[in-house]
Computed example of a mutant assay.
Amino acid sequence: MTLDVDVRQYNREAWNRQVAKGDRWTVPVGPEVIAAARRGEWSVVLTPNKPVPRAWFGDLKGRDVLCLAGAGGQQAPVFAAAGARVAVLDNSPAQLGQDRLVAERDGLEVRLVEGDMRDLSSFAEGSFDLVFHPCSNCFVDAIRPVWREAYRVLRPGGVLLSGICNPVIYLMDPALEQQGVMQLKYKMPYSDFTSLTDEERARYKDEPLVFAHSLEDQLGGQTDAGFAITGLYEDTHVAGDKLSEYLAGFIATRAVKLATR
């Protein structure tokens, strides 16, 4: 089954609703976090729990950083407080508003851009030293354009840090999982368009539409775009997630833009 829906518009409105609800990924950091970052004491996540190794960043002072589909008043203000020149591109005006709130509250400069993560035409080629892309490409139906655009806007030797979802997390029967039973129900390619029944879709009507992407597109897509993957770790979901007792469903990668392809 397919739906005649503008995914970008649908998910923009859905994430605006998540801000109003106070979803975990929409709650801005407090002034104490910004004060600590100014002292050089900070950490951020690409996946639900594990902090990204500081060695993956290097020194942020004076570097140009793009938070790609990563608004919400969390990572971007921290990078700015740590001394980076920061831009944020996100599909949700309300999410961008959380970054604006922190920037105005704490006297930070952060450039806010509303847009599609697959189209970075707002930025010139070679604009950034670092692209920080937390788990968010599950909200678009095609991710290879994301990798190609990230490659384009990075300088040679620039770094892409990404959080990605192992597609298996979307394939279990959610009703049985709530009972502590792990059973495959959906097949790849998974999307809320084609995999859910009308009844199931109605259950999640206030949430963003989700797409599961193969590891071939997630990891192979980065290398095909011209990146060399130089670091990787896995992470589990939030406490109480039954699948996390069996496997780590999230992956973080560090990839470097090669000077020549």
Rank of each mutant, 00 (worst) to 15 (best):
L3R: 09
V5R: 14
D6M: 04
V7A: 14
R8I: 10
Q9H: 10
Y10F: 09
N11D: 03
A14R: 14
N16V: 03
Q18C: 03
K21C: 01
R24Y: 14
R24T: 04
G30D: 05
P31H: 06
E32R: 05
E32T: 03
E32V: 03
E32P: 00
I34T: 01
A36L: 07
A37N: 03
R38L: 00
R39K: 04
R39P: 00
W42T: 00
W42E: 00
S43N: 08
V44D: 04
V45T: 12
V52K: 13
P53L: 13
P53R: 12
R54E: 07
W56C: 06
W56Y: 12
F57L: 08
K61H: 15
G62A: 11
V65G: 08
G70K: 14
G72R: 11
A76N: 06
P77W: 12
V78K: 14
V78T: 11
A84P: 01
A84V: 03
V86E: 00
A87W: 11
A87D: 11
A87N: 03
D90T: 04
D90C: 02
S92R: 10
A94C: 04
Q95V: 04
Q95C: 06
Q95D: 12
Q98F: 14
R100K: 12
G107Y: 06
E109C: 07
V110C: 09
V113M: 02
R118A: 11
D119C: 07
S121T: 10
F123C: 06
A124F: 05
F128T: 01
F128H: 05
D129I: 00
H133M: 08
S136T: 13
S136E: 08
S136Y: 05
R144Y: 12
E149I: 11
A150I: 10
A150D: 14
V153M: 05
L154A: 02
L154K: 01
G158C: 09
V159F: 02
L160K: 12
N166I: 13
Y170G: 13
L171S: 15
L171P: 05
M172V: 11
D173I: 05
L176E: 15
Q178G: 08
Q179R: 13
M182D: 13
M182I: 13
Y190W: 09
S195A: 08
T197P: 00
D198S: 13
R201G: 02
R203F: 15
D206R: 05
P208N: 06
P208R: 09
V210Q: 15
F211I: 03
A212S: 10
A212L: 07
H213D: 00
H213C: 00
L215G: 02
E216I: 14
E216V: 12
E216L: 15
Q218G: 00
G221F: 02
G221V: 02
G221S: 02
T223P: 00
D224W: 13
F227G: 00
F227D: 00
T230W: 06
E234M: 10
T236M: 15
T236P: 01
V238G: 15
A239S: 06
A239K: 15
A239I: 13
D241T: 13
K242R: 10
K242M: 11
K242G: 04
E245Y: 07
F250Q: 10
A252D: 10
A252I: 06
V256S: 07
K257Y: 04
